[in-house]
Design a protein around this nucleic acid. Structure first.
Length: 330
DNA sequence: ATCCTACGGGCCATTTCGCC
DNA sequence: GGCGAAATGGCCCGTAGGAT
């Protein structure tokens, strides 16, 4: 049992589901996740369709522990979950959270999973939530400006949610990425470690962005700003770190529109494992791609033991170094 | 000629606000 | 406290023009 166990189990789950034919490479990503994930989630963002379309009830286990429906509803309400939220589509970050586990006295797993589906070869844009390697539940609450996600997760994680570091321990972020969706000969699907996308702290990314905009204007208008002023500005702008504040629409005096600034992020091809940068990642493949320690020998052996036809190799991310790739061809 | 990337855009569900 | 409107968060598609 190690940090990546939940993601690896999930990867194996997808392969098994593909092999058995209950899903195919063109099934909706949500369906792939739910059919492969088999009761391993502590949070599902779209609980409405999970239940309605895929027959996956996040609350099934919790319900079974209650005597009847009424008792369950009362219990949920005592945990500050309104009944109408049980099966809603919350549109919060993230799409899925795996259950936490305890190993040698420490919390592990509980990884986050985001879905990105795209008809083209590039990864669908990130809107408002910049991709990172780790996030804690506490940070998720800040991103969402509410704590629905952590409330739901802690109910499903039941006893383990009272562990001391439950809300603060850093959880791995994984991204289930599909490119060339619908094209049978070109489609690629990968579970990608957030480290593939995050090569700089996101705070750095944000203020550099504002500085770039400023520089471009200075250049275009051919105006001179003393270097000291720019240094001061850089210092001031480095305080701009909170995407929630950035993304809220703003009231500008005398304006009858409220401008809204949302930071979206497009993945560079060096950060897209499906791009021509990484020719080793084949078409018609399902991959698990992660930085250290994922490609350590023990893990590779454990995976190969379960699914012998998986190929194991490494690719080199220009900025974040070696990443292990587990590849299954379909 | 074909592929790829950057950018712009459309659209919609849920949540919160604020009025009655 | 209920209700409609406004605010917010999110998804990913289409396309022009550059790269190969």
């Amino acid at each position: 049992m190690y940090e990546f166990t939940d993601a690896v189990d999930f990867y194996i789950g997808i392969i098994k589901a593909l092999k058995s034919g209950i899903i195919n490479p063109h099934s909706p990503l949500e369906e792939i996740v739910l059919k492969a994930g088999n009761d391993s989630f502590a949070y599902i963002d779209n609980r409405r369709d999970a239940k309605g379309k895929q027959g996956y009830d996040l609350w099934a286990t919790a319900k079974n522990q209650c005597e009847d429906e009424e008792q369950f509803i009362n219990w949920i309400k005592s945990r500050e979950i309104a009944e109408k939220l049980l099966y809603s589509k919350s549109e919060q970050f993230p799409d899925f959270i795996f259950k936490v586990r305890k190993h040698e006295g420490k919390l592990i797993c509980g990884s986050l999973l985001e879905l990105k589906d795209s008809k083209s070869g590039s990864i669908a844009s990130f809107n408002s939530t910049l991709p990172t390697k780790y996030k804690s539940l506490e940070e998720i609450d800040v991103i969402n400006s509410k704590n629905l996600v952590s409330r739901v997760a802690s109910i499903i994680d039941s006893k383990l949610s009272s562990e001391r570091f439950y809300h603060t321990f850093e959880r791995r972020c994984f991204y289930l990425v599909r490119t060339h969706a619908g094209k049978d000969d070109k489609v690629k699907i990968s579970i990608v470690d957030g480290s593939f996308f995050e090569t700089l702290p996101k705070e750095h990314l944000i203020y550099q962005m504002f500085l770039n905009i400023l520089r471009a204007h200075i250049e275009k208008k051919e105006i001179k700003i003393p270097p000291e002023t720019l240094t001061q500005l850089e210092k001031a702008l480095s305080q701009v770190t909170d995407q929630t504040i950035i993304a809220s629409s703003q009231i500008i005096e005398k304006a009858s529109v409220r401008p809204r600034l949302r930071i979206m992020a497009e993945v560079h091809s060096e950060g897209n494992p499906h791009s021509s940068f990484y020719p080793e990642v084949s078409e018609r493949s399902l991959n698990f791609i992660a930085g250290a320690p994922a490609y350590k020998k023990e893990l590779a052996e454990a995976i190969s033991q379960k699914i012998p036809e998986i190929e194991v190799f490494t690719i080199r991310h220009r900025r974040n170094g070696e990443h292990g790739v587990f590849q299954f061809l379909f």
